[in-house]
Amino acid sequence: MTKQETRARERQPAPRITDVTELKRIAQELRRQVVRLVAPTGQGYVQQGLGAADLFTAMFFSELRLDPADPAWPDRDRFLLSTAHNTAIFYATLAARGCLPEASLADYCKDGSPLEINASERIGPLIEATCGSLGQGLSVAVGMAMALRHQKRDARVHVILGDGEMQEGQVWEAALMAGARKLSNLCLILDYNRMQVGGHVDNVVGLEPVADKFQSFGFRVETIDGNDMDAVVGAFARARAHSEAPTCIVADTLVGKGAPSLEGILGHNMKLPADLAARALKELAGAGA
């Protein structure tokens, strides 16, 4: 190992949180933030954000190696949100982790603000690629994983994909490549919330058996409850420890998770009027850690 590599491994400017109770508390706070961000204008994706809050919390507070003060650090772990519209939770998480000024959240989706609905690299290097056109994130992640390997860097690449997004053919071209090249520094997380614009994914074009598909493409596959913090943290750690193949985490998530009045409602771009937002915030304040 070169000197530089050793340094990279030791440097962890944003310390990882390993206490699952604390992670759950953070996830709950991020959920409240999602509702606060989406409610005033109705812009943004509340159901997806609540569903993916545990994935984002574990990713940014426990798994990723990053330096909020130096977002372009070459040895950072890369994170790509291929479903780039899921920004309410993404920005809430980035702000809580110190990667975005909290105050900038007030401009979410406002004219002129770089905090667009679809995450754009206008924000800076933490948006590793601009991904609003679905189906493209995994290809970029594969390229990054191959380049990291080529450059002998030990950083990892994580990418979240949506279940509807899996219908894009490009996803499967990228998956074939990742498996063929045994990219063990790559971790794909399928945010399996069962929802797309047209409703339930099974009523549009179903994916099952999706775990078997990724397995046959050469991935190490784990199916977990994506709203169980222990399970999420554990799956990320096992992906990191594995050195033979890329990992695919099939994360079952529940849209609206945490606010009983919203849970399970397949509203893709659901508006959230003030009274319902207030109710959701109340539910989120009472429940959880």
Binding site: Q43, A84, G132
Partner: peptide, 10 residues
């Protein structure tokens, strides 16, 4: 053209 908040990708 430019008729959406969804940005460059859209």
């Amino acid at each position: 053209g430019l008729t959406t908040m969804l940005g460059v990708s859209h």
